[in-house]
Design a protein around this nucleic acid. Structure first.
Lengths: 202, 202, 202, 202
DNA sequence: CATTAACCGAGACGGTACGTCATGTCTTGGC
DNA sequence: GCCAAGACATGACGTACCGTCTCGGTTAATG
């Protein structure tokens, strides 16, 4: 998966330096961890990565896109797509993994920064939304599979259920009024499914 | 009226200009509406309000605190504290009002901007959190009253339920992947109460 | 001699506080000594003197006038008017006292600050010039007396001689390329008088 | 050409804009002429020169250094190094040129401003002193040459003589109690040389 | 194998807003 | 009417990053 941005057919010229590209991503992640998203600047990243500012701009349009990219690269595709056989099991596994993010300061800082940027920079809102959608899709898949197995009423609002799950997660993450621990996941999932009229509580 | 910041008992000195104070708040709100939170600057507010920058800094430490103040002043204490006699009724009334915020672009812009700022500016995070808590408290009150009436199991997690309600709201607001309309409120409340094991669905 | 500025016949009201006035002068001198002329501010003086800023402005129009006033008060009328019987003796005594200023950091700092201010603030240039003239007058008196005694040619340019004396002093003081010590005074006076065609060298 | 500040060998980077550099110096001189040193601001210069403030700060640390630079550029190296064959001739030529500065308002304003700044800003004092020294050196050269030709006693204090010459000039310039005209130069030089015990008057 | 075009580093450029500072004026209540 | 207190409008400060640009120099693929 080509990070940075795709570019048109080259007809000559030096090829882009993979080293520079990787150094930038690594520097970005490091700096977010050290300083927090807000305090990181493009100039700072360029210095840390020993790279020219223009090289960064050639690949990424904004700090937000760069950090999002770095986050994906560093943290990887950690969102699991569990398949335990039951909807409750699948959702609990997912939620447990999701809530676990709260225990990693780098991830917390990054997610909060990215969400903030999505509010402030319209150009970033869309890529961010797409990334969010890709994570919502995982949950929707689990729910759909459960519904197909008859574990949910036919008229259950799966979209809303997904938003409930992520909504709680983000709300706690962003407001920080109380921590969110992996232990709470099963109870929340149970409550969610019961709210949907699921059959798991029998 | 908790606007600007309270300051200790004056023992002399020119009295604070109410005109300047009000003009600043009004200008802040106007500009957020016109340009969006991000594009608003303290200098811009000072110009619009025909007030010196230093006057603004004397009373508000940051754009975020100023806008939060202006938001409270302009929008007022609109969060209702309904008392319909039933928990379902109370929550539905509240949620309907809450979701209604989505229909006012100014409020949406402001809330998104403030939430973003709370992520980026640690100094603002706390005042913001306090404001959020004051709104959570309303819902907690409703839930507590319902529980006392026996409408909820004794062991229901009211805090989590509150976060579910606001979580969905904010998640939709911030990500913007789908609109949030007041019509959805009753269904969400029903689902929430059913998840809590409430007796309302009988 | 009324320092500050004279004010019209009072027709009632609280009498001006001599305490406040003196405290201001003292604070000004202290602060110039501690921080240097440049770093002293009216606000700082007001704080140090425990006096309102407006009280200072009521008496003095600018920091420069205040410091000049304070300088006169603190340093006093130290410029001697020697009468040794010979022009060379008189001038040497005067020059020795003048050069001695260089050894007092407070006086050096103050004089340099005042001269600077006279360049930058046209409103201060005139009072400053008058003060300078009052010191020039002392030397002119000595020279005139010497001329009347026949110690100088009739056509000697006494004004120019005065400026030579003060010019060297100020130049060294302001540029600071080399110190000016009281020991040098006799040689300079001798040179000056010889330049004027005086009879002292016999 | 010692303009702006010399900077280390470039190893890359956009080349320094000569246009911007020149425009800044020109604007600085113009504004000093129009408004006087005191009223000129860095922001004003930036506006007039159509240049970013940061560009100015990149090359000059203060208004004083910028104006000094502009003054050297605009006025050029006007201090002559006359060689008339006699010390009296040389000094008279020099003094005449020096006194002539008084007739150019721009130069007067600039010199007074720079001298003032040197008193107030320690960081500027040194560069200013160096510039002053470079002008003193010219006179010292003339005197030394004269001494070598036997026109002065062996023990004459050439440094003091130099300070006498410049001292009178600056004193009149700064205090402004009486004008200084080129016509006075010969008389002052004659007096100076006679004070030194020179042989020129025979 | 030379050309050539895009890459890279460095860093100057025009901008914009920042938050601070001191100014001199004013408006209170108290003496 | 003076005084302390301190809010006010003003305006420049020097800083920090932004995103763009212009260099000299490098490095492939193309012709």
């Amino acid at each position: 998966m080509p990070t940075g941005e795709a570019h048109p057919r080259r007809v000559g010229g030096r090829i882009r330096s993979q080293d520079a590209h990787d150094a930038v991503l690594a520097a970005a992640i490091e700096l977010v961890e050290e300083l927090g998203y807000q305090a990181v600047t493009i100039e700072g990243i360029a210095n840390r990565a020993d790279v020219a500012k223009s090289t960064i701009y050639r690949w990424w349009k904004s700090k937000a896109l760069l950090v999002l990219d770095g986050y994906r690269t560093a943290v990887g595709q950690r969102m699991p797509e569990p398949d335990t056989g039951s909807l409750a099991g699948d959702l609990t596994a997912f939620a447990t993994a999701l809530y676990g993010v709260s225990e990693h300061p780098l991830r917390v800082r990054t997610l909060r920064g990215l969400m903030a940027e999505a509010q402030l920079d319209p150009a970033f809102a869309q890529p961010f939304r797409e990334w969010v959608e890709s994570r919502r899709a995982v949950v929707l898949t689990l729910l759909t599979r459960g519904a197909e197995r008859g574990e949910l009423p036919a008229d259950a609002d799966l979209e809303a259920a997904t938003d409930h799950l992520f909504g709680l997660f983000w709300y706690r993450l962003l407001v920080g009024h109380r921590p969110l621990t992996a232990k709470e996941a099963p109870a929340h999932v149970a409550q969610l499914l019961q709210g949907l009229g699921g059959t798991e509580s029998r």
